[in-house]
Design a protein around this nucleic acid. Structure first.
Length: 262
DNA sequence: ATGGTAGCTGCGCTA
């Protein structure tokens, strides 16, 4: 791992239900005092978002929630400004987008559709969603210099991000059209921050519950923090913290993040 | 080709 969580961290964490993971998230934030945390799969509507658990630590929160599925949120030391809750022009009841500005940093928190299986209806939705994301990000990149686009991308970028690339090649999370869509996002002027640094091999951010994949580290790196070129000389580290994945009743995802020099 | 586990919900859907 290059670096570790700290006060300069901007963090993405798919918590797979904030109701179940509330104490884990609160304790993690108490330990590291990160600047911004973007959550995915909170699975609660806004009226039962447990913001008070984090506001009692001195943090601000904002939820873009949904019952049962999806749902994204920010927990941040400074309040978010210029919030965006949707992909413009993409009418979608699914709550997957939350963007906010923290000082001079634009942070875009995403829960990219999973896609279920290549060729399925949900896969087509995923690719369409990513195409609309691209068009909106192009505008966001024009409006803002320092941008972090982070979240559960449900795409593993390269072979080294997959425990068994030959088994996964062409499958959901690792198909060519998904790679093309991610490539188009990077072409807007973004880096996969994790690869700005030398990293230990076999570092992943998600391990399937069903195959008990964590025990053998059979994972994928699908949780990403993309950083704009203007941030290159401020990005000090990019890391995955697998400690919370070892907890009792963990999320299937680990928190990932970038440390950005103020 | 399928199933395994987990969460939410109310036993099927999503991941």
């Amino acid at each position: 791992m290059s670096g570790k969580p700290g006060r300069n961290s901007v963090v993405s964490w798919n918590v797979n239900s904030i109701r179940v993971r509330e104490a884990q998230v609160r304790e993690w934030i108490e330990q590291y005092q990160p600047a911004v945390v973007g959550l995915q799969e909170t699975k609660v509507p806004n009226d039962v978002w447990p913001g008070e658990a984090f506001e009692s630590l001195g943090y601000h929160t904002v939820s873009n929630g949904q019952r049962t599925y999806n749902g994204v949120a920010f927990i941040s030391r400074e309040p978010a400004e210029d919030l965006v809750f949707d992909l413009p022009g993409f009418d979608d009841p699914q709550r997957r987008v939350l963007a906010g500005t923290f000082g001079d940093l634009r942070v875009i928190n995403l829960y990219v559709p999973n896609g279920q299986a290549v060729g399925s209806e949900k896969y087509e939705y995923k690719l369409s969603w990513l195409a609309h994301l691209h068009d909106w990000l192009k505008e966001e990149m024009a409006r803002h210099d320092k941008v972090v686009v982070m979240g559960d991308f449900n795409i593993a970028p390269k072979d080294e991000d997959v425990h068994d690339p030959e088994a996964w090649r062409g499958k959901i999370l690792f198909s060519e059209p998904e790679h093309a869509a991610l490539g188009k996002l990077l072409d807007l002027g973004l880096d996969d921050s994790f690869r700005l640094f030398d990293q230990e091999p076999e570092q992943f951010s998600w391990w399937d519950f069903r195959t008990r994949a964590f025990r053998r580290n059979r994972g994928l790196r699908i949780d990403l923090a993309l950083t704009s070129h203007a941030l290159r000389n401020q990005v000090e580290a990019s890391w995955i913290d697998i400690e919370p994945r070892k907890a009792e009743r963990p999320s299937d995802h680990a928190p990932v993040g970038v440390n950005i020099e103020p």
